Amino acid sequence: MPSGLTIGEFATLTHLSVRTLRRYHEAGLLEPATVDPFTGYRYYTPDQIPTAQVIHRLRQLDVPLAEVETVLGTDDPHERAEVIEGHLQRLEAELERTRAAVLSLRRLLRPTPADLPVELRTVRGRAVAAINGHVRLEDSLLWYDSAMTELDATFPPAERTGPPGGQYANELFTHGVGTMTVFRPVRAPHPNGRIEVVDLPPADLAIAVHAGPHDDIDVTYGRLGAWVVEHALTVDGPIHEVYRVGPRDTADPAEWRTEIGWPVFRLAAAVEPQLRS
Rank of each mutant, 00 (worst) to 15 (best):
T45Y: 11
R121F: 11
W143Y: 12
L13C: 04
L137N: 06
T234S: 13
A254G: 02
V128S: 07
T74R: 09
T12C: 08
L151N: 02
V177E: 14
R19M: 01
L91W: 08
P202W: 08
V209D: 06
G246K: 01
A81F: 15
P117W: 12
P46Q: 04
G133F: 12
F155Q: 01
L109F: 07
A270R: 11
H231P: 08
R160Y: 11
H56S: 15
R107E: 15
P64Q: 05
T45N: 10
Y221S: 07
R57Y: 07
A81C: 13
L224W: 06
A114F: 12
A232C: 13
E94T: 05
G176P: 05
H214S: 04
G8H: 03
R187D: 12
P164R: 05
P64E: 05
P46W: 09
D216L: 08
A27W: 14
T220P: 10
T179A: 09
D215N: 09
L233D: 06
P32I: 06
V271T: 02
A232T: 04
D216Y: 07
A93K: 06
F183W: 08
A203D: 14
G178F: 07
G162T: 01
E94F: 09
V102T: 01
L91N: 05
A147P: 10
A100G: 03
H214E: 06
A269Y: 10
T39A: 07
L275R: 12
L142K: 08
L5P: 06
G28A: 08
G261Y: 02
R223W: 11
L13T: 00
T14R: 07
H175D: 05
G4R: 07
P263G: 02
A226P: 03
L29Y: 08
R266Q: 10
E69T: 01
P77S: 02
G225K: 10
E230L: 14
T14C: 09
G165M: 12
L88H: 10
I207R: 12
E196H: 11
A147F: 12
T220M: 11
G125K: 08
S17W: 02
P238F: 04
E196C: 11
